[in-house]
Amino acid sequence: MALELKNLLLEKGDFSLTADLSLETGSLTSVLGPSGAGKSTLFDGLAGFLEPKRGTISFEGLNLAGLEPGKRPIAVLFQDNNLFPHLTAGQNVGLAISHKRRLSNSQVALVDEVLERVDLGGLADRSLSQLSGGQLSRVALARMLLLERPIWLLDEPFAALGPSLKRDMLALVKEMAADVGVTVLMITHDPSDALALSDSAILVAESRVEGPFSTQALLADPPDALRHYL
C-alpha cells in the first residue's frame, strides 16, 4: 500500500508539472529540485489546494480527488504562518482535535501530553511571543502529531532555524514519524538535510517529478538541473 500519483498533471498559470510515482506507506522522502521547479506546487496538489488537470492521487486505495484539504489524510507544515499568533501554544495544538470554544478535560490532557512529547511540557498556556523559534517549530510538530493524519508534507519548515536546532528538529520528525508510522515528504534545499532525513529522495525539475532515488546516489551524481542548483 502506498501514496500513488498516477499520470498527474498540475497547472498553475502557465507553469505545469507532471508526476507518476509511488511512495511506500511509512517511508520518509526528501523532495529536491531547483527553486521555482514546482516543489511547492506538488505539495499544493497533494494537499488539495490545487486541483489536478489530469490524473489521480490516491493513498492506500483511497482516491483523494475532490476531497477538501481539511478532509484529506494529509497534514502540512508550511514554510511560515503555521501557528496563529493570537492563540496560546495549547490553543494552537488543540485546534487539531476540536474547533469548539473550550476543550474537554480529556482533550486538554491530550494536548499536554503531546506538548510533553516535543519537550514543551507545561508550556500550553504560553503565548507564542514568549516562545523561541525552535519551540515554535515544536508546537507546530505537536499539532501534526495530534492531527493524526497518515501523511506529512513538510515544506522547508525549519529553514529559519540554525544548523543545530534544525538537526534536532529533523531527528524529532524522524523519531515521531517512526513512532506513528506516517509517510513523510519534506522539501529541502540543503543536501545535508536530505541525507539526514532519509535514504530516499524524489527530484522535481524541468516540469517533472521523478524518483524515488537513493538520496546518496542522487546527490553523488545529480542530473544537470540539480547540479546547477546545488
Binding site: A47, F49, E68, P69, G70, F84, A96, R101
Partner: peptide, 16 residues
C-alpha cells in the same frame, strides 16, 4: 492555508 488544512471552515474559522 493553515486554517483550511486544519479544516477550520465556516463559523469556526471566524471565531479562531
Amino acid at each position: 492555508r493553515t486554517a483550511t488544512m486544519l479544516n477550520l471552515m465556516g463559523w469556526a474559522r471566524w471565531r479562531w
